[in-house]
């Protein structure tokens, strides 16, 4: 019933509609696009180094003859997967930590929030960058874990403060007075009632993670070669952006579009899930 209303409102929201269409097209491009191109991303065309876009290489080639179209889409796949995984982990962690801290209060709250404060003191970029030398040669999944591990703190504070008010809600008290264990109350009554916030947050975390990955990869602290992501491609392209703009323009443009589409959906979701909010 409620999901239908939300969906209706979401479809009514122009931002969300454009964002949704754009995202579907981008995902289709990332996952179906490679089958349409003539080259695989690992192929090297030794006859065309740094060739501008033409009929054969739609988006041109790199300095080692890779097909930019294939490589960029491959990079976008990786960026999307990283974004989704990070958002899932980060939001999940934020929900659990925030809800437990807010509901139990006392020393649980104090310890958890001190941890959050501590992690907030240093920007996540800095910490991941420091750890990154260790990650050379490790699986990219570790990178996902790191990004997620430093992306949940602010949400967990919001979750905590909302839990503090939810805890006083009468239906939560009613559950307590029925003799239902506290952890069950958190999972059954508190977290589901935060779902609007969490869905919105998860959406925005996807774009945050995509940007975060790209930012780290820009300095070589992220995804390591031979693997590619939008970030590594942009870093590569930026060096020669004036001479060979296609190396920079395609990954950069796709990154902006991807982030924009996700943000638009996130903002639309906020309007649809939270009828009290404006616009």
């Amino acid at each position: 019933m409620r999901s239908k209303v939300v969906l209706g409102r979401l479809l009514h929201n122009r931002q969300a509609r454009y964002g949704g269409i754009a995202l579907i097209l981008l995902i289709a491009l990332a996952y179906i696009g490679p089958y349409l191109g003539a080259y695989d991303w690992t192929d090297k065309d030794f006859l065309a180094f740094l060739s501008p876009p033409d009929a054969d290489h739609w988006w041109g080639t790199t300095s080692i003859g890779q097909d930019m179209y294939a490589v960029t889409l491959r990079g976008m796949q990786k960026s999307i997967v990283i974004g989704l995984l990070v958002a899932l982990f980060a939001t999940g962690l934020a929900a659990l930590v925030g809800a437990f801290a807010g509901y139990f209060g006392g020393w649980v709250d104090k310890v958890l929030m001190w941890g959050v404060d501590l992690l907030l003191v240093l920007p996540s970029f800095l910490i991941i960058a420091i750890i990154s030398p260790r990650l050379r040669g490790a699986s990219w999944l570790w990178f996902v874990v790191l990004l997620a591990a430093f992306a949940w703190m602010i949400t967990s504070r919001v979750v905590r403060s909302m839990t503090l008010s939810l805890r006083e809600r009468e239906y939560v008290q009613a559950a307590l007075y029925m003799g239902i264990p506290r952890w069950k109350i958190i999972l059954r009554h508190i977290v589901p009632n935060l779902s609007s916030l969490l869905i919105i947050d998860a959406t925005l975390n996807v774009s945050g993670a995509v940007i975060g990955e790209a930012a780290l990869s820009f300095f070589g602290f992220g995804i390591q070669p031979p693997d590619v992501s939008l970030g590594t491609l942009i870093a590569e392209g930026a060096r020669n952006a004036t001479g060979y703009p296609w190396l920079f323009a395609f990954p950069a443009g796709l990154l902006v579009l991807l982030v924009l589409a996700i943000n638009l959906i996130g903002d639309g979701l906020r309007d649809a899930l939270d009828p009290g909010s404006n616009s």
Partner: peptide
């Protein structure tokens, strides 16, 4: 503002540098 927020700083800075160069 949506477009600006979708452009990460490193991209923006690079774009600005390229534009100024040109």
């Amino acid at each position: 503002s949506f477009v600006v927020m979708a452009v990460p700083v490193f991209l923006l800075a690079t774009l600005l540098a390229i534009a100024t160069y040109n």
